[in-house]
Amino acid sequence: MQIGRSQGSPKGLRYRVGIIVGAVAVLVAILVAQAFRPAIEPAVAQSPTFGIGRAPTAEELKAIDIDVFPDGRGLPPGRGTARAGRETYTSRCVTCHGPTGTEGPQDILAGGQGSLNTSAPLKTVGSYWPFATTLWDYLRRAMPFDHPGTLTTDQVYATTAYVLFLNGIVGEDDVLDETTLPRVKMPNRDGFVGDPRPDIPVKKK
């Protein structure tokens, strides 16, 4: 061992070559990483390529930025109860959805809870919709069918409350506003799963 070590140039050389090879490899790795860096460059570093388009004004954005999220983002200040919503529902909704939301002729709004796993599922706001905020968003966005965009903010809160009341989800005098609406827990809140397809086995070629 002693001799081997004192004379040990072959082993030592291999050691030194190893270090050099290692260093070169690290250097190459750094260079390669540098070369591919643009692919993972943060978006903030991007600059416009075409310089086309203009910035929207705050007012323009406010007019079109109408989406409302389950956590309440996008809800404007306002309030309503089912008691207040009965009037709007009766004058604007009842012809399509019936006096209690169960008669149609258009979408059935109430009932159906517990029916989803039966042979005759009834998908309604109460049995199927996972978020009360979605109802608010849709009423403001698209209802009434023949005159969308005509309900006031408070009418949307009140009509939302009334449809939830028809489903036994809120009380007649419960106040829905931008704070309380996102807290309403819908019966089918946890009824949704992701897309597992392909659910038919795929033969590998």
Binding site: F69, L116, K123, V125, W129, P130, G191, G194, D195
Partner: peptide
């Protein structure tokens, strides 16, 4: 956003009562 179309409408109800959501591909 969990819009009406992607929650109450274009979701696929399974026999167990759950519904598949964001089933985008046309196979």
């Amino acid at each position: 956003a969990m819009s009406r179309e992607e929650t109450s409408k274009y979701t696929d109800l399974m026999p167990d009562g759950t519904a598949r959501q964001f089933t985008f591909y046309m196979e």
